[in-house]
Design a protein around this nucleic acid. Structure first.
Length: 480
RNA sequence: GCUCCCGUAGUGUAGUCCGGCCAAUCAUUCCAGCCUUUCGAGCUGGAUACCCGGGUUCGAAUCCCGGCGGGAGCACCA
C-alpha cells in the first residue's frame, strides 16, 4: 500500500499540478466595494501564490457598463492591500475589447460561433427544445456581414448577439449555446460610448485566463457551469486549460452583502456609509477593528471544499481577539451612567493597569476627591446594603443612594464580591456604535482620548476601535 | 422540470482516492474547576459528529447499491 501521509498542520491542501510557480488571479467586478465574501477568493489565491511562487493578477471585470461603480476601481486595490494580498499585475477588461473581438471573429470563421438576430426569448425557447435557431448554420460569409453590422449600428440592443456554439443536445440546459458578446448602448464609465459591443463574462474570462497564462483558477461553485462553457472555447482554440477549483457557497447572517441593498440603505440614511458596522464590507470590518490576519486565518481554516458553509462571526471574532488582546490598552467606559456620591474621609486614587498581563506598560491614575461622585453603569447599581468592589479603587457598600467607602481589603474578593468598573466625576463623553446599528452612550475615563485610531478594551464591555476623540469620543464595537 | 455538485459534533475542519494504528483530528463554541481586582486573558478537565438503509468484507467514515437531505445552474449579470 502506497500512502503518502500529508501533514495537515498547514491549513490548505496542495494544488493539483503545481510543481513550479503558479499564475492565478483575483477578478472582482467593480460594482461596489469588496466584502468579506470576496476576501475568501483573494486570500486563497494569495496563499497559493505565496506557497508556490509565481504571480497573482488582479483583473477588473467591467464588461457590463450598466453595473459599474466607478469608485470601485479605487477602493478594490485599497481593500486588497489591506488584506495583505500581493498583486503582481493589474489589468482592466475594458482595455482589452479588441482582443475579445479578435477571438470572437476567429470562432465565427471556424464555424464555432454565430451571430443570432432572433428575439432573445425565441432563441431561448428553441434552445430549451434542443433546436437550432435559423442563424446557427448560416454560412460564414453571412455571419461575418452580420458581425460587422453589430458594430456599425445597424442592430440595436438585443437585436443581435454573438453566440458560441456548444452542443445543443447537451442534457444540461445550462451548457447549450451561450451568448459571447452583445450590444449595449449604455455609456461605460471608462470608455464612454467608444464601444457598443461588449463581451460577456464567459467570453472575456476564457480569453483572459488563457492570455494571462493562468495555471489555476479558484472560483465559487456557482461558476461550475461557466467553467464548462469556457472549456468549449478552450477546446475550439486548442488552448491548454488551467486547473479549476470550485469552492462552496458561504451563507452569512446578520450582515448585508448585497451591493444594491447596501447602496440603497446608505442613500436612505440607514447606514453611515460603505463602512457602516452593519455591513459586511471590508471597509466596515476595518473600521470595527477586525485585523486582516484574522480574516486570513479564518479562510485558511475554512479551506476550499465544495461544501456550502455557514460563516461564523464567533470564530472570526475569536481569531481577532487573539490578535488584539495582547496589545489593547484597558480603559473604563460606563454605559448608561448613573451618578453616585462616594463617601470617603480622604481622597482616593486608582492605579489601574494599562494591561493586566503587562505591568511595564504602566497604570491609569484616576482621582476621586473627597465629596465627589463616581458613575456606574445602570445595570451595575447594587441593591440596598450590598457591597461591591470598584475595580482598582476600593470597596464600598451601597446605602440610601450613596456609596460608602469600606476600605481596600482585597480579601473580600474571596467572598465573591461583585467587581464593577466605574469612572470619576470628571470624565469624557463617549459613545460606542454597535454592530446592529445602535449607539451606546456613556462616559469614559479621560485617558481614552489619547487612544485615537487604536483598538482598546473597555473593561467588562468589550473591544472597540476608537475612531474619534473630539468633540466626544466615538468608538466602534469590535467584539467582546 | 432538466443538469451538476455536496452530506464528519452548534460552526468550520482532518481522515474518504489507496478499507484496519479512527471507540474518529484540530480550531471555535458550550459546561465545570483553577487562577485572576474585567463579563478579557491563561491553565485543566469535560460535552457534542461519520445523513439513513442495505450489500461486499475477518474488518467500512472510507468500496457498491438504494433512499433522504442540502446547494448551485438552466440570464444578451459576474
Amino acid at each position: 500500500m502506497v500512502r503518502e501521509s500529508k501533514p495537515k498542520d498547514f491549513g490548505l491542501p496542495d494544488l493539483e499540478n503545481a510543481a513550479g510557480p503558479v499564475r492565478m488571479r483575483v477578478a472582482p467586478n467593480p460594482s461596489g466595494p469588496l466584502h468579506i465574501g470576496h476576501s475568501r477568493m483573494a486570500i486563497l489565491n494569495d496563499e497559493y501564490v505565496k506557497r508556490y511562487g509565481g504571480a497573482c493578477i488582479s483583473r477588473f471585470e467591467d464588461t457590463d457598463p450598466a453595473r459599474i461603480d466607478p469608485s470601485a476601481y479605487d477602493s478594490i486595490p485599497v481593500d486588497l492591500e489591506w488584506l495583505g494580498v500581493k498583486i503582481h499585475e493589474t489589468i482592466i477588461q475594458s482595455d482589452r475589447f479588441d482582443l475579445y473581438y479578435e477571438v470572437a471573429k476567429k470562432l465565427l470563421n471556424m464555424g464555432k460561433a454565430y451571430v443570432c438576430t432572433c428575439r432573445p426569448d425565441d432563441w431561448r425557447e428553441l434552445k430549451a427544445k434542443k433546436m437550432p435557431c435559423p442563424h446557427r448554420e448560416e454560412p460564414v460569409e453571412s455571419q461575418a456581414t452580420r458581425w460587422d453590422r453589430m458594430f456599425d449600428g445597424t442592430y440595436a440592443q438585443e437585436e443581435a448577439s454573438l453566440v458560441v456554439k456548444t452542443d445543443l443536445s447537451h442534457p444540461n440546459p445550462a451548457i447549450r449555446d451561450f451568448v459571447g458578446l452583445r450590444i449595449d448602448e449604455t455609456p461605460h464609465p471608462r470608455t464612454g460610448t467608444r464601444f457598443r459591443v461588449y463581451p460577456l463574462m464567459n467570453m472575456a474570462v476564457a480569453v483572459d485566463d488563457h492570455e494571462l497564462g493562468l495555471t489555476h483558477v479558484l472560483r465559487g461553485k456557482d461558476h461550475l457551469n461557466n467553467t464548462y462553457r469556457q472549456q468549449y472555447i478552450y477546446s475550439y482554440l486548442g488552448w491548454k486549460e488551467p486547473v479549476y477549483v470550485h469552492y462552496g457557497r458561504v451563507s452569512m447572517e446578520e450582515v448585508q452583502l448585497s451591493t444594491s441593498k447596501m447602496s440603497a440603505g446608505i442613500a436612505e440614511g440607514l447606514y453611515t456609509g460603505w463602512d457602516d458596522p452593519q455591513l459586511g464590507t471590508l471597509a466596515s470590518l476595518r473600521r470595527r477593528g477586525i485585523k486582516p490576519q484574522a480574516i486570513r486565518r479564518y479562510w485558511i481554516e475554512t479551506g476550499i471544499k465544495e461544501v456550502d458553509i455557514a460563516f461564523s462571526w464567533q470564530t472570526l471574532n475569536a481569531f481577532n481577539k487573539e490578535l488584539v488582546d495582547d496589545t489593547a490598552a484597558r480603559y473604563f467606559f460606563v454605559d448608561d451612567p448613573v451618578r453616585m456620591l462616594l463617601k470617603a474621609s480622604s481622597p482616593l486614587t486608582a492605579h489601574a493597569p494599562v494591561h493586566p498581563a503587562h505591568p511595564e506598560r504602566g497604570v491609569r491614575r484616576l482621582l476621586v476627591p473627597v465629596g465627589s461622585a463616581v458613575f456606574l453603569s445602570g445595570s451595575d447599581v447594587p441593591r440596598e446594603g450590598i457591597r461591591i468592589r470598584l475595580k482598582d479603587l476600593c470597596n464600598a457598600v451601597y446605602r440610601d443612594g450613596t456609596l460608602h467607602f469600606e476600605g481596600n481589603d482585597l480579601s473580600v474578593l474571596k467572598d465573591g464580591i461583585r467587581i464593577v468598573h466605574w469612572v470619576p466625576e470628571k470624565s469624557a463623553e463617549a459613545e460606542v456604535r454597535m454592530a446592529d446599528g445602535s449607539v451606546r452612550k456613556g462616559l469614559a475615563e479621560i485617558g481614552l482620548k489619547s487612544a485615537k485610531g487604536e483598538v482598546v478594551q473597555l473593561e467588562r464591555f468589550g473591544f472597540v476601535r476608537v475612531e474619534e476623540t473630539s468633540p466626544l469620543i466615538r468608538c466602534v464595537y469590535t467584539h467582546r
